[in-house]
């Protein structure tokens, strides 16, 4: 009996020691376990080539929050991608990087990335692993190079230990940095919103009459591009936004060189839309009401405009309110507050 008691105490002490040790928040990482929610398509990202592990996830997390990845030590990935807003830069139409320099596009949300067919508003990046190269090298974001980052990481015993744990030896390469970041960011999975729980028929979770009406309107008017369950079909569309002469952003055409792609931008997911304002590629709309006003009456019918815009859609004020009520059911608090994605300065 006494023996058992000592045993138990020892185990408790060991647990405390483990928690208090170098990796203080390992207990939150019990499940570095990528999930394909029931009914979702197969992910596009090949996880077999870069299966997330606890150590890889933690290395990626440290890199994600480290401002030393930027040339002047001021800007990290997390500077413009904060968890509580679905990993975008909330309340910023465009973001600012080093020296306060501004970009030209609204930071995209980061979650369910393994299903993305391409990255960036114009789809210029073709794989999750190479996506960070854009912000790292952009002169108005982190203005750095992978070569410089390798030199910095090579001087850190903390990082070298993490590379050793993750890859079996401590050498730092561009590939390893990028794969670790992908192990962290591919774990940003959002599939526990009220909408998801209603769809899963979880006990006690039901749409209100208003939400249900909004859902019906959504299915009728928005579903063709914002396809469930990811709420995007990953296509590029011109939704008839008047061109902002300050940016004159031609969108997808910049990548393909095809004039048929002029003014087309990626259809963004609508999950967590409540917290990821402002909206559109240049963050021109501050509220969902403004977005619905645009669809209802503000579209410019230029040559490449989407078929849905040509056909036109009109929402009454009540319908707008109902659609917004539905969109708010796409907020996923479990994801937005998931402790695994916090900055632990470990």
């Amino acid at each position: 009996m006494r023996k058992n008691h000592i045993k138990c105490s020892l185990i408790v002490l060991m647990c405390i020691a483990a928690v208090a040790g170098g990796s203080a928040f390992d207990e939150n990482l019990k499940e570095v376990n990528f999930v394909i929610p029931k009914g979702w398509p197969k992910p596009v990202y090949n996880l077999n080539r870069n299966k997330p592990t606890t150590s890889g996830f933690m290395l990626g997390r440290k890199l994600f929050f480290d401002p030393m990845l930027s040339r002047d030590g001021s800007t990290s990935c997390a500077s413009c991608h904060t968890q509580f807003s679905g990993f975008t830069h909330v309340d910023h139409n465009v973001s600012h990087g080093i020296n306060g320099l501004k970009g030209t596009r609204n930071a995209l949300v980061l979650f369910n990335l393994a299903w993305n067919k391409s990255f960036m508003w114009d789809g210029g990046v073709n794989n999750l692993e190479v996506q960070p190269l854009g912000p790292i090298t952009s002169p108005v974001e982190m203005n750095n190079t992978l070569e410089n980052i390798i030199k910095y990481l090579d001087t850190s015993i903390n990082y070298k230990t993490r590379f050793y744990k993750t890859y079996g030896d401590s050498s730092v390469t561009g590939q390893r940095i990028l794969k670790a970041l992908a192990q962290f960011t591919c774990m940003f999975e959002s599939y526990n919103s009220k909408y998801d729980k209603v769809m899963r028929k979880e006990q006690g979770v039901e749409f209100t009459t208003q939400e249900l009406n909004g859902y019906k309107l959504f299915r009728k008017n928005c579903e063709s591009c914002h396809k469930e369950p990811l709420f995007t079909d990953y296509s590029f569309k011109n939704i008839g936004l008047p061109v902002d002469s300050a940016y004159f952003d031609i969108g997808r055409m910049k990548i393909t060189g095809d004039s048929g792609d002029s003014l087309k931008f990626k259809v963004p997911t609508l999950r967590n839309i409540e917290v990821s304002y402002p909206y559109m590629h240049d963050g021109r709309f501050r509220s969902l009401k403004q977005v619905l006003n645009h669809y209802s009456s503000g579209t410019v019918l230029s040559a490449t405009v989407a078929k849905e815009m040509k056909d036109g859609m009109f929402f009454t004020e009540n319908e707008k309110t109902d659609i917004i009520a539905f969109l708010l059911t796409l907020s996923d608090k479990e994801f937005l507050l998931d402790l695994r994605f916090r900055n632990y300065r470990d």
Binding site: V130, L133, T173
Partner: peptide, 13 residues
């Protein structure tokens, strides 16, 4: 390795 400086950041390849 993209660290070799032979990789485009904004239009992958």
């Amino acid at each position: 390795d993209p660290a070799k400086g032979m990789y485009w950041a904004w239009n992958s390849g």
